[in-house]
Design a protein around this nucleic acid. Structure first.
Lengths: 231, 231
DNA sequence: CAGTATCCTTCCAGATACTG
DNA sequence: CAGTATCTGGAAGGATACTG
């Protein structure tokens, strides 16, 4: 009886258009909603983790959005083994937003002046940036993996048989190990600085095969594609 | 001096996150914005056309959004040859939203009950639905084209050398000509009815090679992929 | 920890009137 | 025709205090 104001199913504002995009926005178009999905794309999280990772959201909004996304089948809430509280995760349906969201994120990185100096940052957004930047048409022919440590987030890209996977945790035998802070990471992703420049200014440290760095940079679209010569 | 309330550049609500997706949503995340971009993805339009194709938007909102998108470099406004008024079109930067938007639209079509009976519809949304449904991994090996007449919108898909293009206007030698209304079209796209069912109930008429219909349906993901047998 | 309840501000829809 | 400006009720968003 309490949630009548903001969440009565089917009565919230709709575009009322017989169009796939409008239908999509009816579900995930409200403020904050897509950012919640973004968080869950990196992995399941608890309520308070989400609250922390979405600076500015306000607890009522988060609760309302989670309720809505659960009703819509985008998010699932399941009790934790210890019996205390629950954890939120994407359903298979919600996972279907991964590609379009990565596409939007890539576009966002290409916005002329996307960020302000006071903007908040969380290391997992670096994971997202990497996923967004991967060029499916620039996959190296060498099977190898690249490990990244962004603040305290450890993850890696695996290249195998010209296929790509991004995984949490460290890689066993990484051809390249990159260590940096989240801000530098996103700056590289948005083209504000080059990976080489970041190394030179000691904002980023590298370990491993220099050739692998070139392949990795190319994979992420940070260098001109294939066989282009430096000018 | 008049637009101080809603449109002072750079002062509007931002997420304030150092993240590509947040930056993207700072630009196109507000209500109606992405639908305006959708309209312009199909082709340039004048103010009043946009007003008509975005039922419910309200003239002030449209004006404000167009001003904002122009400032952001997503939309360009250029005077028409006859000197009267101007026409709005996407910039190259705005065009960069095509893939993610098509992805969102495809996802929207997969929402359980996306539409309501009173929803408005415009034929060009059918063009968008087709673009959204194209499976890059299911391109026929036969070079041919498929023509669609959706209400009064004529367009076609060209398959050539395993590459795809969607164009306005009719095709010269279409292997398949499909004629239907926009609602049926979107219903097929969202899987509510099959193309064959639409033919059987005379909501859709076909002309051309039945084999081409199968290839085209497969290309649009309306039939199980490759060599799968009907069960 | 995981949310509700409350209060206040901002944004949006729709109507309408106005300008070049 | 192609917009811009203004107004108003109502809905959504934001901050914070509070509860099981």
């Amino acid at each position: 009886m309490a949630n009548e104001s903001g969440a009565r199913a089917g009565e919230r504002r709709r575009y009322g258009q017989y169009c796939g995009l409008a239908a999509c926005l009816d579900v995930i178009g409200e403020r904050w909603t897509l950012l919640i999905v973004r968080e869950l794309l990196v992995g399941p999280q608890r309520y308070n983790e989400l609250l922390h990772n979405l600076p500015g959201i306000g607890t009522n909004l988060l609760a309302e959005r989670l309720r809505w996304l659960t009703r819509q089948g985008v998010v699932r809430q399941h009790p934790r083994s210890n019996g205390k509280g629950h954890i939120y995760e994407l359903t298979a349906f919600g996972e279907g937003l991964r590609e379009p969201i990565l596409g939007l994120a890539r576009w966002g990185l290409s916005v002329p002046h996307p960020f302000s100096a006071e903007d908040e940052i969380r290391p997992q957004w670096g994971v997202l940036a990497v996923e967004a930047l991967i060029r499916r048409d620039q996959i190296p022919e060498v099977d190898e993996s690249y490990e990244f440590l962004v603040d305290d987030q450890l993850f890696h890209i695996v290249v195998k048989d010209r296929r790509i996977a991004v995984n949490q945790a460290g890689a066993e035998h990484a051809a390249l190990r990159v260590s940096t802070d989240a801000k530098t990471f996103v700056d590289i992703g948005s083209g504000r600085i080059s990976p080489f420049e970041a190394v030179a200014t000691r904002r980023l440290s590298l370990e491993g095969d220099p050739e692998a760095l070139t392949r990795c940079s190319r994979l992420l679209g940070l260098l001109p594609a294939e066989s282009a010569r430096a000018s």
